[in-house]
Nucleic acid binder design. Structure first.
Ligand code: MN
Ligand code: MN
Ligand code: ZN
Ligand code: ZN
Lengths: 139, 139
DNA sequence: CCAAGGGATTGGACTATGTCTAATTCTTCG
DNA sequence: CGAAGAATTAGACATAGTCCAATCCCTTGG
């Protein structure tokens, strides 16, 4: 449960906390992701940041999203073979994916119990566990 | 545990069992998927079916993979934003995904216990649950 | 204040996966 | 055989994402 206000000033702090130099475009992109608080894909981020009148290029949108990922300020959700979703919620959680509408909904990890994962072969380490529940409108 | 031999004749039966007219190209593609018994992507399927000397076009590879999916003879695994993997194992199961090598490994669903999934909103029905454990070589 | 340097941004070319279409070929069956 | 329908095909097309060299911008030190 988040109560923070997603002002541009707070975005600056957030960027700094992740070791990211807060430039104008980065602040706008962070603001788009966090104020919208949902699961956006790159073209939606681009549309939102360019909605008013400022210009942010496609290259910068992708550069920035990949930088945010690298610095773990956001995470990606891979459920659709044709595009990546970017998720401002980096707290571990899972997803419902509505295959008819493309809508993603969070599932709190507290609720979930997952047991019986096999031992990893030696030399491997777990990066994360993604649970995706694919849903669609009943017929 | 599968013990079937993946001969072309058996592929013909398998295609018929799924209501698919067994043509030369479809038999070859099914054979590639099932004899390799792994998780292949479209370009690998195409490379394998065209390895000897016969010709199967890119359009046919995609047509056929999508037909197999539709008829539920195979399933798709979405873990990499840049390509789909096709899985001849349609028995419910989950996956390890090695993000360094791109390798997918099955996790038997018998082993797994999953509890606490929230109730679905009315009007929605579950299509499937995918658990992906992303792993990488230890540092 | 200016100039230099490094980081950030940019347009546009490029790549890769996947789709579409219209023409062709193959199969089935009377 | 000949017609009809199904399957295959080459190649154009769509689209997400990457790459690159040129430019821009911001900091800093003289
Ligand atoms: Mn991608
Ligand atoms: Mn498998
Ligand atoms: Zn989420
Ligand atoms: Zn599998």
């Amino acid at each position: 449960m988040r109560t923070t206000e997603y002002t541009r000033d707070n975005m600056v702090d957030l960027l700094r906390q992740h070791g990211i130099n807060p430039t104008h475009q980065r602040i706008e992109i962070a603001h788009a992701l966090f104020s919208h608080y949902g699961h956006l894909c790159a073209d939606q981020v681009m549309a939102i940041t360019n909605a008013k009148h400022s210009e942010t290029s496609k290259a910068t949108v992708y550069n920035t999203l990949n930088l945010f990922l690298e610095k773990k300020m956001i995470r990606e959700v891979i459920v659709d073979p044709s595009k990546v979703f970017y998720d401002p919620n980096t707290y571990p959680h899972h997803h419902f994916y509505n295959t008819a509408t493309g809508e993603l909904t969070d599932i709190d990890v507290e609720d979930i119990g997952l047991t019986g994962l096999p031992q990893l072969p030696p030399g491997l380490v777990t990066e994360g566990v993604d649970i995706i529940v694919r849903v669609r409108p009943s017929p």
